[in-house]
Amino acid sequence: MTEDFYDILGVSRDASDEEIQQAYREAVREYHPDVSDDPDAEEKFKKAKTAKEVLTDDEKRRMYDQMGHEQFVEAEKRGATDSGRGGAGGMGGMGGMGGGGPFGDMQDIFDQFFGGGGGGGRNRPRQGQDLKTSLEIDLEEAYHGVEKQMDVRRPEQCSDCDGRGHPPGTDSQTCPECNGQGQTTTVQQTPFGRMQSRQTCRRCEGEGTIYEETCSTCGGNGVVRADATLTVEVPAGIRDGQTLRMDGEGAPGERGARNGDLLVEISVADHPDFEREGDDLYTNAPISFPQAVFGDTIQIDTLDGTVELEIPDGTQSGEQFRLRKKGMPRLQRRGQGNLYVQVQVVTPESLNADQKEALEQFAEAGGEEIEVEQGFFDKIRDSL
């Protein structure tokens, strides 16, 4: 078998257990020897079943991802002897990791492959998978904090069978393959002693019980996809790209284990008037030529109302002023950033007769021979 287990089932390497189970069920419907006309159906069915058993076992999947397909398959064929020897050099130098030398990492691999003394398999409670989604808010909402409602489609426990995978009252019997243990055990003699290899029972898939009927709603998986409306509490000061964790709102756990969490990545939309850098905000404010020359008090819009800014006389276009603590709240800390205001001197596009006369007198008083009609303001603009 040279195919990658992920390729056999047609799933990505970060596929969830639910996605893997769904892919396996599709493979069963297509390649089960009792229903398929494909001459290679039996072989394809076996490959799909093997892939599913490895990828739905947390410990085996970790080992498979670490070792790669070929070395993992060889380890299963040859047992602990070849798997252990590979730790020193045959696994791409893994033995040098963790400061424990080759035998330190080899023991980790043994723990993963043989159950680690704690017992692997699917018959123990297992926490549900974490799920991810995204939510966009505007800068005002990031400033004040906001409570948002969000619609998500997620796996939930099947209500028709209460997550059991079979209808209530379905006839059942103890699995004869594992005697109700959910696991089968193989004893192997190695240079390190007798090793016990525990694997999920292939017949009952770790349940320990075989049921005569599966739930038609969830296909025996105990989980269905459903729409849910959730309320997200977005704290003030959150930044673009940060993630909120909603406890217990992820995929349902197995056999009574807790649900996973829902991770919500926050996207803060651009604002037409403000730019953000960390907790500081930046904006522009127009002022007239007389305001720049003589000084003035102007009104500045912030995300929390209007404040006054004193413009001193002789202010130059492009000069920047700081308004302390008028920026973004500091997330989970006291205080706020600053608001930086860059002023721009606005040149009027047209003047009346009195304005032209006044500016001509201003120019003459400065010893400049300038005709206003010939681009006086253009020259002022160029000099700034």
Rank of each mutant, 00 (worst) to 15 (best):
K44D: 11
S83Y: 14
R154F: 02
E369N: 14
M67G: 00
E308A: 15
H166K: 06
G95E: 04
I287A: 03
E207K: 13
V343D: 02
G115R: 03
E30R: 14
G79D: 07
I238D: 02
G128V: 01
F5V: 02
V268E: 06
M1E: 11
G253K: 03
V264N: 10
C201P: 05
L263W: 14
N221K: 14
K52S: 07
D37M: 04
G165P: 01
V264S: 09
C215T: 04
I311D: 10
M106E: 05
Q71F: 15
G335H: 12
H69E: 01
E207D: 06
K148L: 03
R78W: 09
G118P: 00
G335Y: 10
V146L: 08
R154S: 13
T184F: 07
E76C: 14
P102Y: 15
E59C: 08
A27M: 12
A251P: 00
K77G: 14
T302L: 10
Q21F: 05
S134W: 02
G118R: 15
T81N: 14
P290G: 05
D111T: 02
F45Q: 12
P125R: 03
L351W: 12
Y31R: 11
F376W: 04
R198M: 15
D313A: 15
V223R: 05
E3I: 06
V54Q: 09
G89P: 00
T231W: 05
C218L: 10
A365Q: 07
V223K: 05
M1C: 08
G68L: 02
L359D: 01
Y211K: 04
G86T: 00
G241W: 06
D14L: 13
S83K: 11
D130C: 02
D7H: 08
G116Y: 09
Q344Y: 08
L230G: 07
Q299H: 09
K77H: 14
Q374M: 00
N179A: 12
M94C: 08
F321Y: 08
